[in-house]
């Protein structure tokens, strides 16, 4: 799949704070790409940089294989976005709001198209009502209509379920799946809730304090059967050598001096048995948290993050 968004070494400093720090990731065509991080992790800053609302301090962004800073207008014609709260012109009607943003996106929108768009989000009956009379959910739906009116290839949704009731959240989820599966759009959706990302995204990134923690396929990252198990032996290097000769080689994490295996927790006794037969002197076996556990712990125990980063 060709890459739609390619971000290399992106960073943004606000005075002393590194809001985004050397961030790289790739969004491929057809992805529903989850952007996960707690509040203040740098999600919004990154998304705003993708939309040219914020100028990066360093790094590069290319979208549709074009450099964002040099082909801004071409790129943005193909991008639709809902950025945080769906704020629209309160004193204008739903129809007028939609018409304005359609025009600004460079398309000629006739009444039929605009009404269809409103119908899609269930607001055709309220086309003439001023936005200030709308509920949060209706505003959100109008925001979606605005983001989609010019039929963009890439849709960026920043915290799209914020402030929505459970029904609204469910509608949003269905909409994202519809856009992805039926219409083949590429979607970037950010959230601070793993559960939301989990349900819609096929790939995801977790960022914390502006840095990438992990990026990959959701199915893999969140496979409940895969836990990280950390071994402590008398000689870790020798133990690794020996494990590489066994069936466990595939589970062995190929990173640090620490000895880690991604494996089913239930298989820990078998692992220990293998180690014993290989005469590896085990000091401790430590089944670590799942990705989900880690993510949930970010808010309370930021220290745990590093183990996943490695």
């Amino acid at each position: 799949m060709p890459a739609i968004i390619k971000v290399n070494n992106l960073s943004k400093q606000f005075k002393e704070i590194n809001a985004v720090d050397d961030l790289s990731f790739t969004v491929e065509q057809g992805d529903v790409y989850g952007f996960l991080g707690q509040n203040g992790a740098g999600k919004s800053t990154t998304i705003r940089m993708l939309l040219t609302l914020i100028k990066p301090s360093g790094g590069e962004i290319s979208i549709f294989d074009k450099n964002l800073s040099t082909h801004r207008s071409d790129i943005l014609k193909q991008v639709g976005a809902v950025i945080e709260k769906p704020d629209l012109y309160k004193y204008l009607s739903a129809y007028d709001n939609l018409a304005i943003f359609a025009k600004m996106s460079g398309i000629k929108a006739d009444k039929k198209l605009l009404m269809e768009q409103l119908k899609m989000v269930g607001l055709d009956e309220r086309a003439g009502s001023k936005v200030k009379t709308f509920s949060q959910g209706m505003k959100q739906r109008l925001g979606i209509a605005v983001a989609l009116v010019h039929n963009p290839q890439l849709i960026i949704l920043d915290e799209p379920t914020n402030g929505l009731d459970p029904q609204g959240i469910a509608d949003m989820r269905n909409l994202i799946l519809h856009l992805s599966r039926e219409l083949g759009k590429t979607i970037v959706v950010s959230s601070h809730l793993l559960s939301e990302i989990e349900l819609v995204a096929n790939r995801m990134i977790i960022i914390h304090k502006g840095k990438k923690i992990v990026e990959g396929k959701v199915a893999e990252l969140l496979d409940p059967s895969k836990s990280l198990v950390q071994l402590e032996t008398v000689d870790n290097v020798a133990a690794r050598e020996k494990l590489l000769q066994t069936n466990w080689a595939a589970s062995l994490q190929n990173n640090t001096v620490k000895l880690q295996l991604k494996m089913n927790k239930e298989d820990v006794p078998a692992l220990i048995a293998t180690l014993v037969t290989m005469q590896v002197q085990v000091l401790s076996v430590d089944p670590m948290h799942s990705l989900e556990d880690y993510f949930l712990s970010l808010t309370t125990q930021p220290g745990h993050v590093e183990s996943f980063a490695n």
Partner: peptide
């Protein structure tokens, strides 16, 4: 933010 994310300079 909506305005500035549109393809106009």
């Amino acid at each position: 933010r909506l305005l500035a994310a549109k393809p106009v300079s």
